[in-house]
């Protein structure tokens, strides 16, 4: 099967170009297996990957125009020729490896940790199963970056707009019955950019390899802001 792969080595290339590889595909093969096969043919080919089962979030790439996690994308689902590019909108370091610094900065900007002001109990902080259920669809995020790098608002304002991943994380803590920083979290999201640059284009929902819904989370944050303002 024919694969077209984006190549770029800053030490020798002026700009990225596409290179063709033929890969023998077998039943049940994932896109990561094909990338590994390409690396067997050419060891200079660079991409990030690790767990191979969709939990570490290392191997997000753009395939035929859509961001996907290579290790859980079956080749059989893809149309030939398969074109593989790095995530759009991020500076390319080499081949499929992009600089995700801004993505991580936005994540850190939402203070992604549980805040408690009360003294900690000797045992666990109690949480009802119903309250715990509110975290489902939020805590499973693997920070692969498929969503944020598919988001036009993040492409235009990566330094000001938090992007879907960070906002999903913000809601993960706002939705946690144990967290005690609701007001601070909401205040920090005020202004025209951080949250409100989301124009519900919903690319994030379409590409999330874990089936999460950042747009919905953003909607929840907006509703809570409204409710608290009244």
């Amino acid at each position: 099967m024919k694969f077209l792969v984006s190549r770029y080595n800053p030490e020798s290339d002026a700009s990225p170009y596409m290179q063709a590889f033929d890969v023998e595909v077998s039943r049940g093969m994932m896109l990561r297996d094909a990338l590994l096969e390409i690396k067997r043919q050419d060891e200079s080919f660079a991409f990030r990957h690790s767990c191979g089962e969709g939990v570490c979030g290392s191997d997000g790439v753009n395939v035929n125009g859509t961001n996907k996690l290579a290790c859980i994308t079956p080749i059989s689902e893809l149309k030939e020729p398969i074109e593989i590019r790095p995530f759009p909108g991020r500076p390319i370091i080499r081949d499929l490896v992009v600089d995700m610094t801004q993505f991580y900065q936005q994540y850190k900007a939402v203070k992604p940790w549980l805040v408690r002001n009360d003294p900690m109990p000797e045992q666990e902080i109690l949480q009802s199963p119903q309250d715990r259920d509110k975290l489902d669809g939020l805590y499973e995020c693997i920070m692969c970056g498929c969503c944020s790098t598919a988001c036009p608002s993040f492409w235009w304002n990566p330094e000001k707009f938090h992007g879907p991943q960070a906002l999903l994380t913000a809601w993960r803590f706002l939705a946690d019955s144990r967290d005690q920083a609701t007001d601070e979290r909401l205040d920090a999201l005020e202004g025209p950019y951080k949250l409100f640059r989301c124009h519900t284009i919903m690319n994030c929902v379409e590409v999330c390899p874990k089936g999460l819904n950042p747009t919905k989370a953003i909607g929840h944050i907006k509703n809570l802001m409204l409710k608290n303002a009244v």
Binding site: W113, M120, E124, I125, L126, Q127, P129, R132, D176
Partner: peptide
């Protein structure tokens, strides 16, 4: 306490 979202029993 550090925020791990453990699954819960009915008594919390």
């Amino acid at each position: 306490h550090n925020g791990v979202p453990f699954s819960r029993l009915d008594n919390g």
